[in-house]
Design a protein around this nucleic acid. Structure first.
Lengths: 117, 117
DNA sequence: GCTGCAGATCGACGGGCATCAATCTATATA
DNA sequence: TATATAGATTGATGCCCGTCGATCTGCAGC
């Protein structure tokens, strides 16, 4: 780094330096940050992350009745997690008679994935 | 998908089918899910996400005094967010006299990034 | 030693989250 | 029409989160 970190605070401030490094700025604007943080937040629960994992690796749409026995939580709680994922725009569902089929929306994770890479 | 979704519930159950599809299971075990969810949760706030963005694109270590003016939050709140990121194992810090320099831990985001891809 | 500064910690407040049992809604079977 | 079932919704509970002002902790300069 160009600026000598050994200089004392007073000396650097007297020299016109803001404090330490030249200038730093965020590349991701607030809107993108909000959107990606929303997705990350939805994935910030181990059960929801595993849910997305199951749905992603399963090509088609998966019935809720198959998801319930996979996790050690009640059916209302699972329904709550699925709603969280739906609200975040990660998954969507389809009714088929009594059953509900969930699937991951294509490219829903792409923005976050691209930023992380 | 192999199973006909048009079959009635009773018919399918009578045929021995659990309900809809063969069998579905999670590929990510609970431990990996816990770890990745912890990272995702830490990124689940727009300010923290932008913080990581700044630190990541800045090769060296960035002084806190440069981060404060970038966001419209108080200094204690910023310090709180940095602690959250540190607790999640995403960033680390280094003291240099009065200043604290933060940086992203190499490969801290790799597991989540790889899973998302 | 005293003063000033950068950054971390504390305490409080308002709001959101994960979870459950109980209930409701809509569909299928009889 | 009446009954049974899958899944969503509701209400309650206990906990965590983001935010702030105030305070504390070290380091630097005098």
């Amino acid at each position: 780094m160009p600026v000598d970190l050994q200089l004392s605070p007073k000396t650097k401030r007297a020299a016109g330096a803001p404090c330490c490094e030249p200038v730093v700025y965020p590349d991701v604007d607030r809107e993108h940050a909000l959107r990606m943080a929303e997705v990350a937040k939805a994935l910030g629960d181990p059960i929801r992350l595993q849910l997305v994992d199951v749905l992603r690796r399963h090509a088609g749409k998966v019935c809720v009745c198959e998801l319930v026995p996979l996790f050690d939580i009640s059916q209302p709680t699972l329904s709550h997690h699925l709603k969280k994922l739906r609200d975040a725009g990660i998954v969507d569902s389809e009714r088929q008679g009594l059953w509900a089929y969930y699937y991951v929306i294509p490219d829903a994770l792409e923005e976050l994935s691209a930023w992380l890479t």
